[in-house]
């Protein structure tokens, strides 16, 4: 079945079973591979994208449910790594293997949208993605730094 999806501000015409998880449509049809597959059961968050600004785990979210809504992936933050969250991530050299980091960054972004000045406890409760390399220690610091950068931007 053919339908349209709006990803990072661009409309894409795709052809898939409407029950296909959004993750696979983004990766295989829209062609954006920054969003990752890991567990397939909405546990780990590696596939986190935003739909109308809300973080969702795209491995378990039917693509058809995103029709007419605005989808943002890691590629939508910035192509050159200049988004404040990406800058903070680089400042603290957060990623190790990096596989979970697209999802981690999208979860952090969603948290900061709701709560521009999170405490450690807010971060711990608000970001539930799995990182097997355990970059958590630097994630926490980078979220605080990103909050500062975003405030400095007047965002």
């Amino acid at each position: 079945m053919a339908f349209d999806l709006e990803v990072n501000g661009t409309s894409f015409s795709v052809d898939a079973d409407p029950q296909t998880p959004l993750l696979w449509v983004i990766r295989d049809q829209v062609g954006l591979t920054g969003t990752k597959f890991s567990c397939g059961i909405a546990q780990c968050g590696a596939c986190t994208v935003h739909v109308d600004g809300q973080p969702i785990r795209s491995c378990s979210f039917p693509a058809s449910a995103a029709v007419g809504r605005s989808i943002t992936t890691i590629e939508g933050l910035s192509a050159d790594g200049s988004h404040p969250v990406q800058l903070a991530w680089k400042e603290f050299d957060v990623p190790q293997c990096g596989y979970c980091q697209s999802g981690m960054i999208m979860s952090a972004m969603a948290l900061l949208d709701k709560n521009p000045d999170p405490t450690d406890a807010d971060i711990d409760a608000g970001i539930t993605n799995i990182c097997r390399c355990s970059t958590y220690h630097r994630v926490r610091k980078a979220v605080h730094r990103a909050a500062e950068l975003l405030k400095g931007q007047g965002a």
């Binding site: 790594g81 050299d93 980091q101």
Partner: peptide, 11 residues
């Protein structure tokens, strides 16, 4: 700083 990091924050 690790040289692989910039590409890992943009996907």
């Amino acid at each position: 700083k690790n040289l692989d990091v910039p590409a890992k924050v943009t996907g």
